[in-house]
């Protein structure tokens, strides 16, 4: 479905703005009343059916818009949209991580998110150019076995010390880990990052996924691991928090180890239904749902987070575009060079 009008608008917007290229003004889609009106929606969801389906039902009850959802991994769906190109049947892509959104944005297969939707979320949690918007946040965190770790590290750089040899688990193929390494490169430089990665090559036990790390720590197999905070809450929900050996510990306030990543969404085909859905994702009811169901950070103001979670305002997040694939490429190079990938 190639839409000449939308493409033309984007082109005109791009041309007029090249001179005074302020990123904020680039996000300048059609006014709502002039987009195609639709009463059904195709959603590609990289987040699970268990989590998303109740939200969809809420959305349909509220707006009368029917939603057809394809559930799969975020990276697979991004690859699928890239292959589908202009002919993608998807209206909205909801992704588990920023990298997959960045891949679609780079291929310019997203339409701009309406400015008023973007404005609901702090800029640092969305695409700088306005191709996608952050929907929920998750913090990097240390999970540890209290029986084996008595002296908790205050910085993620402490983990480079020899006393952590064989005791710390990481998942270098995981998108959140890579985003964290990117942040380290931006804030501390490539040299420091390379040193840290080499230390990890010495110290770390490698896993494929965050979930596997948590399982290993919980089983007493590894002393500690770097994961996203909500994995712990998901497992606690499954087996009962009282049965969890693994505990969580944030690093000192402001430490890079507490980096916040986002899950987000972008518009593949711009129409009234996809705009309504984007707005719904950032509504009070949807944001409360994310906060309660997955223990994630809501990204609009005024929603309470679950007890025990460090407030978002106290977590240092570098002002960088975590979905930028060129940056990601450099990060992958460093991780590879350290022999971790």
């Amino acid at each position: 479905m190639f839409k000449p009008l939308a493409a033309l608008t984007a082109l005109v917007a791009a041309l007029t703005l090249t001179g005074c290229a302020s990123a904020e003004q680039e996000a300048n889609p059609l006014p709502t009343e002039s987009v195609e009106q639709k009463d059904s929606l195709v959603l590609y969801s990289g987040r699970s059916e268990d989590l998303i389906q109740p939200l969809i039902d809420m959305f349909t009850a509220e707006t009368g818009i029917k939603v057809e959802v394809r559930y799969a991994g975020s990276a697979e769906l991004a690859a699928q949209i890239l292959e589908e190109g202009e002919n993608s049947p998807a209206d909205v892509f909801l992704s588990q991580d920023a990298g997959a959104l960045g891949a679609v944005a780079k291929a310019t297969l997203f339409e701009f998110v309406p400015t008023e939707t973007l404005a609901k979320v702090d800029r640092i949690y969305s695409d700088l150019e306005g191709y996608w918007v952050g929907v929920s946040g998750r913090a990097r965190i240390l999970t540890y076995d209290p029986a084996k770790v008595t002296e908790l590290p205050t910085s993620v750089f402490d983990l480079a010390e020899p006393k952590w040899k064989g005791r710390i688990a990481i998942a270098p193929t995981n998108a959140s880990f890579q985003a964290f390494v990117t942040a380290m490169r931006v804030l501390e430089g490539n040299e420091v990052t390379s040193l840290w990665l080499s230390a990890m090559k010495e110290n770390a036990v490698i896993f494929e996924k965050n979930g596997a790390i948590l399982d290993a720590v919980d089983a007493g197999q590894v002393d500690a691991g770097l994961i996203n905070h909500y994995y712990w809450h998901a497992k606690a929900k499954e087996v009962g928090a009282e049965n969890m050996k693994a505990q969580l510990s944030a690093f000192a306030p402001g430490d890079l180890g507490n980096l916040v990543n986002v899950a987000g969404a972008g518009i593949v085909n711009d129409n009234s239904a996809s705009r309504a859905f984007m707005d719904f994702l950032l509504s009070t009811s949807a944001q409360t749902y994310f906060a309660e169901q997955t223990a994630e950070y809501p990204l609009i103001p005024g929603i309470s987070i679950i007890p025990g979670l460090t407030p978002l305002s106290e977590v240092k997040s570098p002002d960088i575009d975590l979905s930028n694939l060129d940056t990601l490429g450099e990060t992958l190079e460093l991780i590879r060079a350290a022999g971790l990938l």
Binding site: G73, A75, E76, A78, A79, L82, G99, A100, A103, K106, T173, A175, Q178, I206, F207, E208, A212, L325, L328, G329, L332, L341
Partner: peptide, 20 residues
């Protein structure tokens, strides 16, 4: 992938999934 042994296929998947 689960057993963490690097083969061509794992590298192909990683090319799609990590660096797109």
């Amino acid at each position: 992938a689960i057993l963490r042994f690097d083969t061509f296929t794992r590298a192909i998947y990683n090319a799609y999934r990590l660096s797109f």
